[in-house]
Simulated assay, not measured.
Amino acid sequence: MDTYLRERRRSPVQDSRAVTSAIDDLEGAVSLFLRARPSLIGIAYRILGNASEAEDVMQEVWLRLQRTDRTAVHSPPALLRTITVRVAINVLQSARRRRECCATPWLPDPPDPDATPDAVAERQDAVERAVALLLEKLTPQQRAVYVLRQGFGYPYDRIAGLLDLSVANARQQVTRAQRRLDAPWRRQPVDVVVQRRLVQALRAAAQVGDLARLEQVLLSDTGEPMSAPRGRPANG
């Protein structure tokens, strides 16, 4: 007991050195990381709001810890927290940049009376190709969530209500959809009738604000019934 108390009363400097030396070798680093992982994943989740992305952050944190000169580390827990925050913020900023670059260019533009026929045809072709990509790579549910969120900025609770999902599941569907679009995912055959219907619905939503039609088209593909408009009775 006396020996235990003497060990517990060591100075902070001595304790710090003991912890530092404990992660010099790989086994010590693994032990430290596993102990800290629950709190680190909580930090990542609070920044990203997505459990899957928080798990990915943990993998990057572990890789960075291995590359760090651990002999120079005075506070390993603080180092792990710092790495976690930096990696999570990088992921968040990367996702925002990806959405800014990739989420909306395929949406139809409002009518432009000065646009040349070639410009109109080029834009129409871009929309049709983008919709074909959505049909090739995404499930109907992923497609609906992705278009409503990334294309038209629907709040997650509204999307969840339309598709009978939890808000957390709606967020996950957007993440999974983006990963499928970014990855060399196996492509599915495209139904040209479905493609034409979605292109027309997107055009109507972007140009004249007909979101009800877009919702109907997206939900019909998923098999979900169209919910009644807010403020009106279902039979009305």
Score class of each variant (00 low, 15 high):
residue 1 M to W: 00
residue 3 T to C: 12
residue 3 T to L: 12
residue 6 R to K: 12
residue 6 R to Y: 04
residue 12 P to W: 01
residue 13 V to C: 05
residue 14 Q to M: 11
residue 15 D to I: 00
residue 16 S to D: 08
residue 16 S to P: 04
residue 17 R to V: 00
residue 21 S to W: 09
residue 22 A to H: 08
residue 26 L to N: 06
residue 28 G to T: 03
residue 31 S to Y: 04
residue 32 L to R: 10
residue 33 F to D: 07
residue 40 L to D: 11
residue 43 I to Q: 15
residue 44 A to F: 13
residue 44 A to I: 12
residue 46 R to P: 06
residue 47 I to V: 13
residue 50 N to E: 11
residue 51 A to D: 14
residue 52 S to E: 15
residue 60 E to W: 13
residue 61 V to H: 12
residue 61 V to E: 10
residue 63 L to W: 01
residue 64 R to G: 15
residue 65 L to W: 04
residue 65 L to M: 06
residue 72 A to N: 13
residue 74 H to V: 14
residue 75 S to W: 02
residue 76 P to M: 11
residue 77 P to W: 05
residue 81 R to G: 14
residue 84 T to G: 08
residue 86 R to C: 11
residue 87 V to M: 09
residue 102 C to N: 04
residue 107 L to F: 09
residue 107 L to Y: 10
residue 113 P to R: 02
residue 116 T to P: 03
residue 119 A to Y: 02
residue 120 V to N: 01
residue 120 V to T: 06
residue 123 R to I: 08
residue 123 R to E: 07
residue 126 A to W: 04
residue 128 E to L: 00
residue 132 A to I: 09
residue 135 L to P: 03
residue 138 L to T: 13
residue 141 Q to Y: 02
residue 141 Q to D: 05
residue 149 R to H: 07
residue 152 F to V: 13
residue 156 Y to G: 03
residue 163 L to M: 08
residue 166 S to Q: 15
residue 175 T to M: 12
residue 175 T to L: 14
residue 176 R to H: 12
residue 187 R to T: 15
residue 190 V to G: 03
residue 192 V to Q: 00
residue 193 V to A: 02
residue 197 R to D: 05
residue 200 Q to F: 06
residue 207 Q to S: 05
residue 209 G to W: 00
residue 209 G to T: 03
residue 211 L to P: 04
residue 219 L to A: 02
residue 221 D to H: 05
residue 223 G to K: 10
residue 232 R to I: 15
residue 233 P to K: 05
